[in-house]
Design a protein around this nucleic acid. Structure first.
Lengths: 138, 138
DNA sequence: TAAAACCTTGCCCTTAGGACAAGGTCAAGC
DNA sequence: GCTTGACCTTGTCCTAAGGGCAAGGTTTTA
């Protein structure tokens, strides 16, 4: 009997995650035993694998659901998928740039630390942070 | 009267954020008017500015609180600050590397899209995602 | 004096589950 | 047949850092 724990183990997910995908409409609710246990068929395995892949590409559960919904309605989701991939690519570029700017700011702040340590200075809290004049968050 | 809205505007924060910092112990609870309005003194302004700076460097509220607690106890927080900065620097390097790997994977997946579009293929959902064989999350 | 603009607390919402509780159920061994 | 351990069920609370809204009280301005 392919219970939630077993199918989770087979797809590298946690049982909780599998139930969450069901609750969020990414996978169809499986049959239940008389006692209420979820019983999956092998058909569910590749769908869960797909979800894992898509998540690894940075897609959110909602985006993955939209893709799966399209496909379940018999439409070809490739257009949506390419759009999403393009968006995420642009987003990742932005985030990399932000992190690199932050890295520079942090390094600058860190460099002040040693100098300040020598002089035993202190400003409001620690000159190290206050001297970091321009920093954009993630 | 320096109300929460005014001090928030003066420090570039939202009133909600200022109240949150108070609830989380980053700033001291200010005096209240008879009606219960928070009334700040000018002394609170640089502290809020410090919080903003530290956040811009990627520190969490909890980390910032630890720094401020040290300082309020009269100890010099520079040691903690340098430790935190070093940790965040290493963390940022990891995240940049992860994002760059993800970017490569995404680009690979995206490149498949156009080819698949030509052939009108479809796999489980869309070959685009399933062909992205190795992808590590953020 | 009346209305606009501000303040108060409290609650629900966001992501993608993790941890835990209380209780029911299945599989194995004796 | 029965026990025990491993598994399942639902439900709740928790994460970070607030945003948004509601109901109601206050201050300020016209």
């Amino acid at each position: 009997m392919l219970t939630v724990g077993r199918i989770a183990a087979r797809t590298g997910l946690s049982p909780k995650a599998v139930r969450l995908y069901e609750a969020n409409g990414l996978i169809d609710p499986p049959e239940r035993t008389a006692a209420g246990y979820r019983t999956y068929t092998d058909e569910a395995i590749p769908v869960l694998g797909f979800i894992r892949q898509a998540q690894a590409l940075g897609l959110s559960l909602k985006e993955i659901k939209d893709i799966l919904d399209l496909q379940r309605r018999g439409e070809q989701p490739c257009g949506l998928v390419t759009d999403l991939l393009d968006q995420h690519l642009a987003d990742i570029d932005r985030r990399i740039a932000d992190l690199q700017a932050l890295r520079t700011t942090l390094q600058h702040a860190r460099a002040q630390a040693d100098q300040a340590a020598d002089r035993g200075e202190q400003a409001l809290v620690c000159r190290i942070i206050e001297s970091a004049t321009s920093g954009e968050g993630t």
